[in-house]
Design a protein around this nucleic acid. Structure first.
Length: 864
RNA sequence: GCCUGGGUGGCGGAAUUGGUAGACGCAACGGACUUAAAAUCCGUCGGCUUAACGGCCGUGCCGGUUCGAUUCCGGCCCUAGGCACCA
């Protein structure tokens, strides 16, 4: 390996030299070793979209910093990388460019792998996997069959977005303003049979075990709790007058039962469908509902509408007739698909009742026992019951208890725990996914594919068309020799991403899904990825892991010990209005920004035509907003270390990072000047190691050495405990500034500076491994920086005799004084009172109190 | 609409357990070097005020708790992410 003793910092040369050295040595290969403490460091694997984006760079740099830090601290580190390779974009590319999804995906993987290598990430590439390969997905087909055997899989109907022109199912993102993105046709809701996984069977455990995930962010745990949405209440039947049937509803407010003034069912509810069969007005309303979006957000935001079904239910306590409506805001997929409405005590019911002039009957009193004012809005607080027959006067708890018991005793109701969480719909009507291993006989009977027929491989000739169009795939010979048809749905890609972290432990295992090695590495010690995955991916992965545990494949209860949710990478958007509320977005490279003297962006001009563009809000870098900054260009201009340093320095990992091109320059400048300083230093020491006597340093060098060791403490804590890489880097910069300000060339100074630079090397090695390794050599060390341990602070160097404390008068800072470290409370007080500026503010005043916080401050409370 | 975050100088951010608001960096401005530019180096840098020491105001807005609040509590505004077929 060459030396790098040049004055000029040449990142390209250095980085490529070390990267090929690491590769040749297999420096990041991980092997199981029961005698060493393992550390499994994992970043969410990427979708191979074509090129890395800044979100990837940020994500993987965070992971690499942590992995390198843990390695230097003696852990047996495993950091793998793979590809979440099934998904929609590959199908779109196939349709648009005529290239097969597999080929498109493989090309993307090859290019993106080269980008990751160029960034110097310490991955064990021998463990690389891609979910679109049969070696991977055959095992999830195998495991699906185990779940099928256990009854955790079932088939049922569910709503999809249906494009009536293209006759195809659309993803939510393919529906734009209610129309299909290619055909432009109005999209309809359609019910089709699909496969589900019974995640609700694990709802209780998924909820309870959140309490044990100490190293997960509270925000994520709260989101998952709310998503699971456990609630206790009453499920009860309202008999339908004149029909031999009843309507089941669930309520968390049984105490408001006497206030029910109407009922509402979802448009897909059997009752609504049967009425519609004979009633054109209702049928028309249901058709209208069919044009509504299938997303919950859209359903909640739209105008609440309903129509009476001409059917009445009987109130189970008062026997009164209650009108039944069909309403567009009731979700068939939540609860029973029907609700009882209490307009006096629920705002949405109140709005609906006002609109359709339905009775609003208060049954809950305010604090003082009075009937609340419900003329302007619903009264949603809890309180004592009124106008509720024998239950009047009871409080919330007693009323619920008493009403539930009454309903249970007469057989119209039952106490129930309800979850908001719905079963996981795993079917997708797509080509580029893992085929669901089921066949059907002529009469429609499900026949699971037998293990020895696995994998059910994707046919090669699909070009983004659904599997149902490929005759050779659909037709299959059943075990009894007759011809049946294959299931043509493929799995949701969350299926693949729910267990890849376990497969990384035994990626080469050809005979089993997982082997013993999984229990050495799992659980993942730290899992790093975007906050946008806080609920779906992370909940599915937890669920899947538990089903694997119950199948005896893994021994841990939870897959991820610590979770670090990384913030988005954002950037300004540039666009022009194109009419009918459509916008055309321009990429940052296409736009020139004019700023005022303070650097605030005033206007943007499109380079191509010189005309102005609108500057939009700062948003997550995305294809649709065309506001991505290409990391490749930055790597080529500044090198990987600068890109890594900037992304770690600009913001703490959890926070959104607003991209700034100019600030990158600052990170490059820091590395350049560090390089030059070490070069100058190496020249003046002539590569001779110097020693010094710790006890005989002059005060300036003593302070410098204290700073070196204080920085070790700070950086160790910032990276190892706080995961605040930005402040760790700031602390190193401060130390470097200090080192550069000491310019003598006597023996002691050079020796302390040597100690300082060596420390800087080790402290920044996780962030900028290439330059750190090169500088390390320039400092004259023959050891390999990868094998050098993390520095330890010399406690003796940290000792100081005096400390600065703040003196406040009535909570306002008036002075900073220096006190001996071992000063008593009395010394603090008398020294504080002696200060000149403090005296100005205490003169002619009476001292009421003195608050002393040792080694921090003294607050003198005075008054006239 | 619901759930979860965030709001601090011109900008990114710091202040770790309620104890010095603005570390570190970017931009800007002034100066040195240079034929010139770039690069580099030195200095200034929240607002108002003061000859200076210093003082007053200031962490989205309104209110509260406290000797002391960017930090805790209540209400409001703005903003980002998620909302089950983007991954």
């Amino acid at each position: 390996m060459q030396d790098f003793l040049t004055e000029r910092y040449d990142p390209d040369l250095i980085e490529k030299a070390f990267q090929s050295d690491w590769e040749a040595r297999g420096a990041y290969r991980a092997t199981e070793d029961p005698n060493r403490e393992k550390f499994y460091c994992l970043c969410m694997f990427p979708y191979p979209s074509g090129r890395l984006h800044m979100g990837h760079v940020r994500n993987y740099t965070i992971g690499d910093v942590i992995a390198r830090f843990q390695r230097m601290n003696g852990k047996n580190v495993m950091q793998p990388m793979g590809w979440d390779a099934f998904g929609l974009p590959a199908e779109n590319a196939a349709i648009e460019n005529g290239v097969h999804p597999a080929k498109w995906t493989d090309q993307n993987i090859a290019y993106m792998r080269s980008q990751l290598e160029r960034l110097g990430f310490g991955y064990d590439w021998q463990r690389e996997l891609a979910t679109c390969k049969t070696e991977y997905y055959r095992w999830e087909q195998w495991f699906f069959l185990r779940l099928y055997e256990k009854g955790l899989v079932y088939r049922s109907t569910a709503t999809v977005n249906w494009d009536p022109v293209d006759e195809t199912v659309l993803a939510n993102e393919q529906v734009i303003d209610g129309r299909g993105w290619r055909s432009g046709a109005l999209v309809e809701r359609k019910e089709i049979p699909q496969w589900f996984l019974k995640i609700t069977a694990y709802a209780e455990e998924l909820l309870n075990e959140l309490d044990n995930l100490e190293d997960w962010p509270d925000a994520v745990k709260t989101m998952q709790r709310n998503w699971i949405g456990r609630s206790e209440g009453l499920e009860l039947k309202f008999a339908l007058i004149g029909l031999d049937d009843s309507l089941e509803v669930f309520t968390t407010r049984p105490d408001t039962l006497y206030g029910v003034s109407f009922m509402a069912v979802a448009p897909e509810h059997p009752l609504a469908l049967s009425v519609a069969a004979a009633d054109d007005t209702v049928a028309e309303f249901l058709n209208e509902c069919k044009l509504q979006s299938t997303t919950e957000a859209a359903l909640e935001k739209m105008e609440k509408k309903g129509i009476p079904l001409g059917v009445n239910a009987r109130h189970p306590l008062t026997d009164e007739p209650i009108p039944v409506y069909v309403a567009n805001f009731v979700l068939m997929s939540y609860g029973t698909g029907a609700v009882m409405a209490v307009p006096a005590h629920d705002q949405r019911d109140w709005d609906f009742a006002k609109k359709y002039d339905l009775p609003i009957r208060p049954v809950i009193s305010c604090g003082n026992g009075e009937i609340p004012d419900i003329s302007k809005r619903a009264y949603v607080e809890k309180g004592n019951l009124v106008q509720s027959d024998v239950h009047s006067g009871l409080d919330f708890e007693d009323a619920c208890e008493s009403i539930i018991q009454l309903m249970e005793s007469n057989g119209t109701g039952v106490r129930r725990v309800q979850y908001r969480l719905r079963d996981w719909l795993v079917s997708r009507q797509r080509y580029w996914g893992c085929p669901i291993p089921v066949m059907y006989s002529e009469d429609g009977t499900e026949i699971p594919v037998s293990d020895d027929m696995l994998p059910v491989a994707l046919p090669d000739d699909g070009q983004g068309t659904p599997l149902s169009n490929i005759k050779e795939f659909v037709e299959a010979v059943l075990p009894d020799g007759t011809v049946g048809r294959r299931e043509t749905d493929t799995f949701d890609t969350f299926f693949e991403s729910s267990w890849y972290f376990s497969r990384f432990c035994s990626p080469d295992q050809a005979n089993m899904m997982l082997d013993d090695r999984v229990n050495y590495w799992m659980p993942v010690d730290i899992y790093i990825g975007g906050v946008e995955h806080a609920v779906l991916h992370l909940l599915y992965a937890r669920f899947f892991h538990k089903t694997m545990r119950d199948a005896g494949l893994v021994s841990s209860d939870e897959p991820f010990k610590k979770l670090l949710t990384q913030g988005m990478v954002c950037k300004e958007t540039y666009y022009r209005e194109m009419g009918n509320s459509r916008r055309k977005y321009f990429s940052p490279e296409e736009v020139e920004i004019k700023t005022d003297s303070k650097g605030v962006a005033l206007s943007g001009v499109l380079k191509a035509d010189g005309r102005e563009v609108d500057i939009g809000p700062i948003e997550k870098m995305s294809k649709s907003k065309n506001n991505g900054v290409d990391p490749q260009a930055l790597i080529e201009k500044y090198g990987a270390d600068t890109v890594r340093l900037y992304t770690m320095f600009a913001a703490p990992p959890e926070q959104t990072l607003e991209w700034s091109d100019t600030a990158v320059e600052g990170s490059f400048r820091f590395l350049k000047s560090l390089w030059r300083m070490v070069f100058e230093h190496a020249k003046s020491t002539n590569q001779n190691k110097r020693t010094y006597k710790k006890d005989e340093l002059d005060p300036v060098l003593g302070e410098l050495r204290r700073h070196i060791h204080r920085t070790i403490v700070k950086v160790t804590d910032d990276i190892g405990r706080r995961y605040k890489f930005n402040t760790a880097i700031a602390a190193v910069m401060e130390l470097v500034n200090h080192l550069s300000s000491v310019n003598a060339d006597d023996n002691d100074t050079l020796a302390i500076k040597q100690e300082g630079f060596e420390t800087v090397c080790k402290l920044i090695a996780p962030v900028v491994p290439h330059i750190a390794a090169a500088i390390w050599r320039n400092l004259g060390s023959q050891e390999d920086l990868l094998l050098v341990g993390w520095p330890e602070a010399d406690q003796k160097a940290l000792v100081t005799s005096e400390i600065n404390i703040v003196v406040q008068v009535n909570g306002r800072k008036r002075a900073i004084i220096s006190v001996p470290v071992d000063a008593t409370k009395e010394v603090y007080e008398s020294m504080a009172l002696e200060d000149g500026n403090v005296k100005r503010f205490t003169k002619d005043q009476t001292i009421r109190r003195m608050i002393v916080v040792p080694s921090k401050l003294v607050n003198i409370v005075v008054s006239d």
